[in-house]
Amino acid sequence: MKRSALLLLSLVFASAVTPSLGDVPMTKWGKPSLQGNWDFRTVTPFQRPASFADKEFLTMEEVEEFEAAVVAGREARAAIDFDGEYDQQDLDVGYNQFYLDQGTRMTTTMRTSQLVYPENGRMPAMTDRGRETAAYFRILQSRSPEGPEDRNLYDRCILGFNAGPPMRSGAYNNIMKLVQTEGHVAILVEMVNDHRIIPTDNGGPDLPTDMRLWKGDSRGYWDGDTFVVNTKNFTHLSRFSGTGEGMLLTERFTRLDENRLEYMWTVEDLEMFEDKFTAVVEMQLTEDDVFEYACHEANYAMPLMLSGARKQEASGEEDDTWLPSWSR
């Protein structure tokens, strides 16, 4: 038999006995395709609300009720009259409903929270060190800023507040692009126009501990049909949810079907929290483009905050009216 015919026969035969992944698109090199633009908006609460107590999953009817209640709550907020000094309808907290883009649907996991561990769907307690560090940054960022470093990384346009890593649905820009080659996966999160390039072969030796990256150092590998990404070497300012530079992040990407990407992540930082915590959502494939989020280029807020602070100092009239109401 000719060599080419043998090759063809063996490939046809092998494909007949290789397990199929059903609706999951595959790459040319035989791995599930994770490529696409992914919408990670969700109204599923990050932590399980008290009203759901020990209930882990919802029925379809309960999901629809919850979603309807969220939409009704937003409509009520948009219509409310704020009384008191700041009579600006729907603008007291800086954004009105036009800007917020948190979706109207719960994630298709049907869960009562994004958090799945601890098993009660609530964040673990912070350690003493975690509480002290959180208090330090809370006080720093509540005072009139002496320089740009007094502001959080979102105000400085260094990291996005939904981008992590890990990615977590926030106020807006809840979309990411994933581009996949055999050797690397690139993840671009719209906020703030930032990317990670993740090798798929674990990427060689670890970085030394004195090399710290804002988004940490990510290395990936395939565990069957799931792409696992381990990230560490964060800076002490990266502070996802109050973590420190010792944070260890494990993300798991699993393509469920044509339209869904399961995204599960675990954060472990036992210096700041008494236990690890794990969340899971199902991102939805979208035809929407990821737009350029030129945050720093249009950061008018920073010079305004700083010049406002200097003016207050000059007049001796420092106050906290510049802070949004939720952080006073």
Partner: peptide
């Protein structure tokens, strides 16, 4: 099938 795949 596995053997033929390895051969290919």
């Amino acid at each position: 099938g596995t053997s033929l795949l390895m051969l290919s």
